[in-house]
């Protein structure tokens, strides 16, 4: 029973981290699906979302507001607005001018943007780790007295549910709405979509904005769950999320979710049963292994090369 509880606990931990990777991974996968480039600055957008949420929360509590749902919603909106604007601006400044060039050029531009944003926040807010208040506390405990007690915190449940809602909303948006249809069209064939009268520039901007908004959600959730923010944590999270997106098949939204969950669980299990020191090694090795057998990722569409 003990072992089962321990296993379930690590599983829950893994699924939680995994959901957060999934939320961020969607931004990567959507952008890649549409314009075929890796948005290295996406991790920084997530970080900016977290900072904005913290600023909003601190400001609201200082003003005397105490009702939790209101604080959270306002903070979420602020974070989403700032992140989306940042995503839009980054696309206009760093990616649109170089669209269509050789693949490496937007990549370097993205890396440069990532460095710029990290240092932007560093200069503006200082380099220290700043604590994020734990607004949602408490949880359930399973297991008896002496032995291992499995805990499922409200925060973890919130993360699951929010991720699920976001995923569903996004899938519905992509499959049902007009803009969603346009997104799918542009990701299939940019030139043709242009010819058919779709304003591809707007659609591409919209993709960045949506991805950024989701990253902001992740920023708020994770800030509350983990407990601190600093200017550099976006990069590592972004890298993991990108790995998750590739794992699941880049360009595929369900793939991002699946990749995120698998990566999260793999990390958690490695930490729990082997050693925390090698969890990144295992994650990357897992990626290499999967790509050996499925070169386009788990749910990725095999790329058809036209001669």
């Amino acid at each position: 029973m003990q072992d089962l509880l321990y296993f379930s606990q690590q599983l829950i931990n893994g699924l939680t981290i995994g959901s957060t990777y999934a939320l961020i991974a969607i931004g990567y996968t959507m952008v890649y699906g549409i314009i075929g480039m890796i948005n290295f600055a996406h991790g920084e957008i997530y970080m900016i979302g977290a900072y904005t949420a913290l600023i909003a929360i601190t400001g609201l509590t200082a003003l005397g507001l105490a009702w939790l749902p209101l604080i959270l919603i306002v903070a979420l909106l602020c974070a989403m607005i700032v992140s989306s604007s940042m995503g839009w601006a980054v696309e206009r400044v760093a990616y649109r001018p170089v669209r269509g060039r050789h693949r490496l050029i937007p990549l370097i531009s993205a890396i440069g943007m990532s460095i710029f944003l990290q240092n932007y926040v560093h200069l503006a807010q200082g380099s220290r780790n700043i604590g994020f208040p734990a607004l949602i506390d408490g949880g359930f405990n399973f297991g008896s007295g002496d032995g291992f007690q499995m805990s499922l915190s409200y925060m973890q449940i919130t993360i699951f549910i929010t991720t699920l809602i976001c995923m569903t909303a996004l899938s519905l948006f992509i499959s049902r709405s007009r803009t969603g249809r346009a997104c799918r069209a542009v990701s299939q064939d940019l030139g043709m979509a242009n010819l058919l009268g779709i304003d591809t520039n707007r659609i591409i901007s919209a993709t960045f904005v949506i991805g950024a908004a989701l990253a902001a959600v992740a920023g708020l959730l994770l800030g509350m769950y983990y407990g601190s923010v600093d200017p550099l944590f976006g990069f590592i999270a972004g890298l993991k999320a990108f790995t998750a997106a590739v794992l699941g098949g880049i360009g595929s939204i369900p793939g991002a979710m699946l990749g995120g969950l698998i990566l999260g669980v793999a990390e958690s299990m490695t930490s729990g049963y082997l050693s925390g020191e090698y969890k990144d090694v295992i994650s990357f090795s897992l990626l290499i292994l999967i790509l050996l057998f499925k070169p386009t990722g788990l749910l990725g569409k095999p790329e058809v090369e036209k001669i």
Binding site: N13, Y226, A237, G276, E277
Partner: peptide, 22 residues
């Protein structure tokens, strides 16, 4: 005797492991 990565934010697995090690 374990190591974590500096810069990491998620220590849930470590905490779980510590709990189990009692």
């Amino acid at each position: 005797f374990e190591g974590i990565t500096a810069g990491d934010k998620d220590f849930s697995s470590l905490v779980t492991k510590l709990k189990q090690a009692d």
